[in-house]
Design a protein around this nucleic acid. Structure first.
Lengths: 198, 198
DNA sequence: CCTACCGATCGGTAGG
DNA sequence: CCTACCGATCGGTAGG
């Protein structure tokens, strides 16, 4: 029961930190959304800062796990399909997970005391994605599917594309967002692939 | 002198709201960075909220003016050059203006009481950019410079591209950012233009 | 433009 | 897990 509450505190904090930011979320809010009083939080965590770092650690583990699983399923597929799978997983997680909102907020506007920590996590996460992209590029090069685009350009433009989508998901309605996503994907694939269609 | 202080308050608020956000910026900080005491702010503004809306209004006027001027200079140029000019102006303003940081923050994470206002401003600003993009597309279509990409896809992918760059400028070092920018631009132009080089 | 002050809320602690 | 409390800071006001 106590352990259950610790988990519920982290879930509540994940949502609230994502919605309102670290400073604008009070311990009172976190506690009351769990159904306990503020001082009881200190039975599970030493400080507000520890709640945050704990939530952030969990978040990264969740994301890393999702992309590691993807990497496994990609072994059998063609590079073009794998790239699309990576794109789809990214968009799907962006739209459906509680983690995405907090991740957006802290990579963009880290609370000053956590800036270093968040940068480390960010580069670690980006490394995972880049390693998948490099694998796809190597496989695709052997099949000669790419236009005159090197590995770095291929990866950088993919990451910039998903960063843009990441941002646009925030301020467009769902239907407009879907159209945007499709347009952007079309132009990207026109840019990198030798053959227009499949 | 009084008017000078009103301007200095808005400048200080622009920077601080951008760096720390609306809620995390105290009136004490704004006042002391101008060299006055907190209650003196109320000689120029009715409330913290009025300072914010005043700063935001100025910001939009500044941006609209910059892009209207660009539209004038584009009348003489070729569509390809004009698109690059729009891209360069966007990146340049992103990297050099105080306004960019606050704009990023509030479009992404608007303080709840200003959400409506900011959305209006955002769509108004996007409308300006989109109208420039549509003009470029019309001119370019007459010269048959585009691949099988329609006006909507052309604009949506440009906007997503600059949104991605907008985000990446935030967390990469300047040199890495420049490489990213070049890679992304290359793939985008490969995607939309019929001819590879100039 | 200032000093002095208001009630509200913050993160955190004492003590049970 | 709670009630009761701490000092600090917040936006804003009174009064000059």
């Amino acid at each position: 029961m106590k352990q259950n509450n610790k988990y519920k505190i982290k879930q509540a904090a994940l949502c609230l930190f994502g919605l309102k930011g670290y400073e604008d979320t009070s311990l009172h809010e976190i506690a009351s959304s769990v159904g306990i009083k503020k001082p009881s939080l200190y039975n599970h965590f030493e400080s507000k800062e520890e709640i945050f770092t704990s939530v952030l650690d969990d978040l990264l583990v969740t994301e890393e796990t999702a992309y590691k699983q993807l990497k496994e399923t990609m072994k059998a597929g063609f590079p073009k399909d794998n790239l699309r799978k990576l794109f789809d997983l990214y968009c799907q997680r962006l739209m459906t997970t509680e983690e995405a909102l907090l991740w957006k907020r802290v990579t963009f506007f880290p609370p000053p005391q956590f800036k270093r920590l968040i940068e480390e996590k960010f580069f670690q996460f980006e490394q995972s994605i880049t390693s998948i992209l490099f694998d796809i590029y190597e496989d695709g090069s052997k099949l000669n599917i790419f236009r005159e685009v090197d590995k770095i350009e291929f990866s950088a433009s993919f990451l910039c594309l998903v960063d843009g989508i990441f941002l646009e998901h925030h301020y467009y309605r769902e239907d407009i967002f879907q159209k945007r996503k499709n347009s952007v994907w079309k132009v990207y694939t026109l840019g990198i692939f030798r053959d227009k269609g499949e």
